[in-house]
């Protein structure tokens, strides 16, 4: 019966390897066919994220400018009141 087991192992491992090798082969082929669509999809996604980032960047910068202006005004006001005293 052990011989039967060894035969089964040989068959089984061969089938598993061949199946997954074929799968690797087919996945590579599908990549070749679909790489153009992939590139387009990726470019669109990157454009979208870039747009989002730019938007957040601009809003952030206006905030920063506002903060800077206000803090400068406060500083100037304090300096003046100090001088007056």
């Amino acid at each position: 019966m052990i011989i039967a087991g060894i035969k089964l192992t040989f068959l089984g491992m061969t089938v598993v390897f061949l199946f997954l090798l074929l799968l690797v082969f087919c996945v590579n082929i599908s990549f070749r066919f679909l790489s153009a669509a992939n590139a387009r999809e990726q470019a669109e996604m990157e454009a979208a994220t870039l747009l989002k980032r730019r938007r957040s960047l601009t809003t952030k910068s206006t905030d920063e400018v506002l903060v800077a202006v206000i803090s400068a005004a406060i500083a100037a006001h304090r300096a003046r009141t100090l001088l007056v005293r």
Binding site: L8, G12, V24
Partner: peptide, 21 residues
């Protein structure tokens, strides 16, 4: 996809255990 072969190799555990039984 190449890493799929690692998944194939690991199935040797199944068949060696079969022999073990």
């Amino acid at each position: 996809p190449k890493t799929a072969l690692l998944g194939a190799a690991a199935q040797f555990g199944i068949f060696s255990t079969l022999i073990g039984a």
